[in-house]
């Protein structure tokens, strides 16, 4: 599967990465070669093989419904770029 400039732009947009045209062109080239390598997978016969998401065949453990966390807002917001009145600030969101 070949990769077009538009594919890279689309992925960059979905991933919220600003790319200028030169960078995009470089990634078209890089990603194209990576995908070419990845395309070897298409040659593997996987008929009837179930996908493997986790290496171990274990199942989800469930947590008891208990409140174990305390308010640590000040601590957590010390590493925040912009806060006011306990809120994280972002440029105005228009709905």
């Amino acid at each position: 599967m070949s990769l077009e400039h538009a594919d890279v732009q689309r992925a960059a947009h979905l991933a919220r990465l600003a790319l200028d045209n030169d960078e995009a062109a470089r990634y078209v080239d890089d990603l194209g070669r990576i995908l070419e390598m990845v395309d070897q997978l298409q040659a593997v016969d996987t008929e009837g093989v179930a996908p493997l998401a986790h290496p171990l065949d274990t199942t989800q453990r469930l947590r008891a419904d208990e409140v174990t966390e305390t308010d640590q807002r000040d601590r957590f917001q010390r590493c925040a770029p912009a806060v006011a009145n306990g809120l994280y600030l972002v440029p105005r969101v228009v709905e």
């Binding site: 807002r73 957590f76 009145n85 306990g86 994280y88």
Partner: peptide
């Protein structure tokens, strides 16, 4: 394990 109670101070019930 953060509380789900309604109406708390902003971000006081948002754990790591």
């Amino acid at each position: 394990g953060a509380s789900t109670a309604f109406g708390a101070e902003p971000n006081s019930q948002a754990c790591a």
